[in-house]
Design a binder for these strands. Sequence first.
RNA 1: GGCGCUAUCGUCUAAGGGUUAGGACAGGGCCCUCUCAAGGCUCAAAUCCGGGUUCGAAUCCCGGUAGCGCUACCA
Length: 482
Amino acid sequence: MTRVRFAPAPTGFLHIGGARTYIFNWLFARQQGGKVVLRIDDTDVERSTKEAIKSIISGLLFLELPWDETYYQSGAREFHDKGAERLLVTGAAYRDFTPPRVDPSSTEKQVSPWLANPGMRELSGEESRRRAEAGEPFVLRFRVPRESGRILEFQDMIFGSQSRAIEDIEDFALCRSDGSPTYHLASCVDDVELEISHVIRGQDHLTNTFKHILLFEALDFNPPTFGHLPLLLGPDGSKLSKRKHGPVVSLTTYRDRGFLGHGLVNYLSLLGWSAKDDREIFTLDELLETFSISGIQRGNAVVTFDESDDQNWADPKALWVNGQHLRTIDVEDLAHYIEKHLLAEDMWNPDFVGEGRDRMIATVDMLRTRYVTLRDFIEKGAAYFSDEFAIEEKARKNLDKGDARTLLHELAKRFKSYDEDTFNEDNVEKEVRGLAAERGVKPGLIINASRAALTGQSVGPSAFWIFIALGLEHVIKRLEQA
RNA sequence: GGCGCUAUCGUCUAAGGGUUAGGACAGGGCCCUCUCAAGGCUCAAAUCCGGGUUCGAAUCCCGGUAGCGCUACCA
């Protein structure tokens, strides 16, 4: 049985690199008919927060790729303790009483690689126990058998055959001085506990994998199959991170700014993976059909975004992919997503249910070809859903041209004799063009002024269509107020 | 510094010994047109450098360089 896990540390929001890892895990597992476990790696009590867990889960829900089980590492402490105990008893681990390094994050160059603290591996079992019982703090370290001169090897699903000399691996920590397990210990023990068959994670763990293999062996378990994904880099070329790149890379930002869950899934899946043909747009089903680990390449991918640019706050390609989804998904579904945003903005109008439903759907359908996010319906499309909308500078200019306002008022007067049946696109066009001919002005003058009066914008769908979309009542009101 | 990984248009990528090095986004132009989009057509844009191997190298090998990652009592 294929079982994969996605294991974020709840030390902040989940960024889109993590989301991509989740997507690839999910796709792989689902193709195999396997299970997906969400494992919250909250062993670092200092930095883990409840809010982060909430943010991660809500971000993941937004992707609409459901997982099967949720597991909290903090609730599995007894397994970790048992593992640590076992490693200590068998001699695979030892206590290190060396005080912590003063400034572990210091940038000073290391002259030679650190492998172990002097004197600690050689401590006799008795002395080690005595000092521990006396209350002297220690970290538990893995005793890497460097003297074996072994070359460690494994087959990575993505990077292929990997090897590393055991003598280059340092005695990594298994438990902190407060007794809590580190990532390496907890992760491996839990992978065993959860019967994980495939570990698919970021390439930043590629070198750690050798440590993990050593750990699995010492614990007497067969290591799972590993696959490492190329990393996502920010515009500056460094590994995507919440600290460095900020909330623009947060999964929840994409949700809040109006991405479609599967639109983002599509874009993210294209980073490091391709179908080997020219296709770029995939529904979830198509992705499920097409995705393959062998289509993943090994180079890191740069995500370009510009926080200060309203148009390109996300990667332009991400926006484009989302736009493609926006205009191809079922319009009813789309309307449903838009409703949520309207509700959130207090722009919800009860007319959108019942009789007005069809009108709303038709509006959404017309607007979707020129928008790329759900937010656009709220911002650029305000006039279609609400009577409160701003009038743009360019639109005002269109209204100020010639006798535009007078003509619009005349138009309003004429539409008063219309009813629901006669008020259709053809008749409106005839009326508008007729008025233009009558007064000897270009039709464009009235047309563009109409759009300005009706929507507050100089750009948008066909003006004749807008008349119908808004309905007779609103049209007359807005024309009169022009 | 040590170890590991990677290297094709600005960005995401295809081509795994023989192609005018293909596609997509973004950019330019044209068509369409009541505006803006969408859509269609089109232009510009790349094999990191140096050596091999080979009739032939983006592709295989070696060396350099660059980038990224790891080198924590973070994950």
